[in-house]
Amino acid sequence: SGLEAALGEVIPLSGYSPASQWVYLYLTGPNLPENGVPLNDVTRRADQGAFTKVSVDGNDYWSYKWNTGNVNGKLDEGTYTIWVVNGPNDRSNLAHADYRTISVRLGKPYVAVDSVQVNGAMEISSNPSGARVTVNGQDRGATPLTVSDLRPGSYQVAFTLPGYYEFSTPVTVEAGRISEVKATLAALPVPTPTTELPATVPATAAPSATPSTTKTTHAAGMVPAVLTGIAGVALLMRMRT
């Protein structure tokens, strides 16, 4: 088993190499020199010291993206072998090297076209107009309005307007079509005003006013006096008259 790709594609390669700081990559296959060529330049030869040299990171891993359409030459369809060696050793000089191989099947190039997503839309109105509209909980504005770029599927459309009942309805959107959504909102009932009678307070007879007099008697030679400036203290002082 191995990798399969079309000529011109980018193939990610990676591996583990704890014994060296670099790995050396080269390629063998249809119409290539027996001892290999660098992955990025098929016009050079590995047995002449030409390799694709890739660094090994601090965790002993390496990675390389091989662009099969950028090899400074032409690759034919067929099965190739990628050689990964811990030193600059071509295929004829691997007796004392640590290496691994990866098999790659390269097929005809092809033109790919991504499928185009055709969306739909909604035209939304209400009576009365001016209602706020949410589509799947997302505010979209006030009626009347058009909501476009909707993927085909089912949506929940809700209308809110002060003084009217909230209205919600499911709407199906189809690709390339506009769904019309019209809502007639029902008014909330107007509260009936109520009149409150004033409370009756029983009449009571006003008490008769009885005049009162206050008589202050001073003992002979005594005049009451209050010493201010000392809170909570009242003194009766003897004063001469």
Rank of each mutant, 00 (worst) to 15 (best):
T217A: 11
R177M: 11
P193L: 05
P198Q: 06
P162C: 08
L150G: 00
K182W: 04
T200L: 13
V223G: 07
A203N: 06
A158M: 06
A183I: 02
E174S: 15
T217S: 13
F159Y: 09
T213I: 05
P211C: 03
S179C: 06
L227A: 15
T228C: 08
P224V: 03
V171H: 02
P198H: 04
L185E: 01
A205I: 05
A158K: 14
A220V: 08
A199F: 06
L188S: 06
P193Q: 07
T184H: 09
V223Y: 15
L197K: 09
G163D: 03
E196C: 09
S154W: 13
P191Y: 13
V223A: 11
A220H: 10
A206E: 04
A205T: 09
A175Y: 08
P152M: 04
V181F: 00
T204K: 13
G229R: 01
S154E: 14
T204D: 10
E166Q: 07
V157R: 01
A203I: 02
V190F: 12
A231Y: 05
H218E: 07
P170G: 02
G163C: 02
A203Q: 12
A206Q: 06
A206C: 04
P224A: 13
P170M: 00
G163T: 01
T216I: 15
A183G: 03
T213F: 08
T172H: 11
T200G: 06
G163S: 03
A220E: 14
R151S: 15
V233R: 13
K215W: 15
P193N: 06
Y165I: 06
L185W: 01
T169W: 08
G232P: 00
T204L: 11
T195W: 08
L227D: 15
A186F: 10
P211A: 13
A220K: 12
P202E: 00
T192N: 10
P162L: 12
L150Q: 01
F159P: 00
G221F: 07
V201C: 08
P202N: 01
T160Q: 14
L197P: 05
G232W: 00
V181I: 01
A231W: 04
F167I: 06
